[in-house]
């Protein structure tokens, strides 16, 4: 299975009643990527992940994870893919170490007990504490331990830091990066907390109302989405159009516009030909770029 494609979907769709939570998704994630599936709440991210893990049956289309069919090869899939969801479900009466032993039973071949123990120590988890006594942050760390202690090739993180305080969120990602990430492993993470993952993800996909609107490297996305300040000889006109320019509005003595297809030199020339005197291009961070991009798609 070595074309380097770790996650693949073809026309994947899932309907609930008459509403398509995921619509005709054709998508690939390559080995070694840290891929961020971004989108607003309700965009379809969790549904997508549940389809990928075989927890939901698709209405149409198919998915392959490490070449495996989640519907027919679910058991093997769960042995090779680590998964951390938003609200981990445990047997609350177990202690941390009892949970480890329980999970180890299902991951016999690759479970590394010594590694699991060192992870617990790294996260300051007391092995003999009952899971029911742990805080949210500690529960997330327990989930992470059991997800990576068997060194899976693929790690799925579905809004893993939901409800965690800032310290716990940082410790979670530090743990992922220090203890798990290597060039031959792939991480697929979904989040609506864009800036939190912006340093980590090198590939992004933007899901909106069940449709994949963007699928490219983080760098490419940031090179294309820009905000621009336009200056005119006189007062800025109330309306202004040029090729590729969106959402122009007057902002004091300047005009402000957005482009989703910035091309250095070319974009400025088009704007100047359309009547602006000067253009200042502003770089955006991932969250701001995401907001500009999605604002274009949202119904007014």
């Amino acid at each position: 299975m070595d074309d380097g494609i770790v996650v693949e979907t073809k026309n994947l769709g899932r309907r609930f009643g008459r509403h398509y939570a995921v619509h005709d998704l054709t998508w690939q994630v390559r080995r070694g990527a840290i891929y961020g599936l971004l989108g607003l709440n309700g965009a379809g991210k969790t549904t997508t992940f549940r389809l990928l893990m075989g927890l939901l049956r698709p209405t149409n289309g198919e998915a392959r994870m490490l070449g495996l069919d989640p519907q027919r090869q679910g058991v093997e899939l769960k042995r090779r893919v680590g998964y951390v969801g938003e609200s981990p479900c445990f047997y609350e009466w177990m202690t941390v170490y009892e949970l480890f032993a329980f999970v180890a039973h299902y991951r016999k071949e690759n479970w590394d007990a010594a590694f699991a123990k060192s992870l617990a120590e790294r996260f300051a988890l007391e092995g003999s504490k009952k899971l029911s006594t742990l805080s949210k942050g500690m529960r997330a760390k327990v989930s992470l331990c059991i997800a990576i202690a068997f060194r899976p090739e693929l790690l799925i993180l579905d809004e893993p830091t939901g409800g965690l305080d800032p310290v716990a969120r940082r410790e979670f990602f530090e743990g992922v990066l220090a203890e798990y990430q290597t060039p031959d492993r792939t991480i697929l993470i979904s989040s609506h907390l864009i800036n939190e993952v912006s340093g980590i993800v090198d590939q992004i996909g933007i899901l909106h109302e069940g449709n994949l609107l963007m699928d490219c490297s983080t760098e490419e996305f940031l090179s294309k989405v820009k905000v621009m300040r336009l200056r005119f000889a006189g007062d800025p006109p109330p309306h202004f159009t040029a090729e590729g320019i969106l959402r122009y509005r007057v902002d004091g003595r300047e005009g402000r516009a957005v482009t989703l297809n910035y091309c250095e030199g070319e974009t400025e020339n088009k704007i100047k030909s359309a009547g602006a005197e000067s253009v200042e291009v502003m770089d955006l961070n991932l969250e701001d770029a995401f907001v500009e991009f999605i604002s274009e798609r949202k119904s007014p």
């Binding site: 070694g32 840290i34 940082r170 990602f173 530090e174 743990g175 990066l177 220090a178 990430q181 060039p183 939190e196 340093g199 980590i200 993800v201 090198d202």
Partner: peptide, 14 residues
């Protein structure tokens, strides 16, 4: 690389 990535929560590749 590993320490810089983990401390700053950024991708090792970066």
């Amino acid at each position: 690389v590993r320490d810089v990535a983990a401390e700053n929560r950024i991708n090792r590749n970066t």
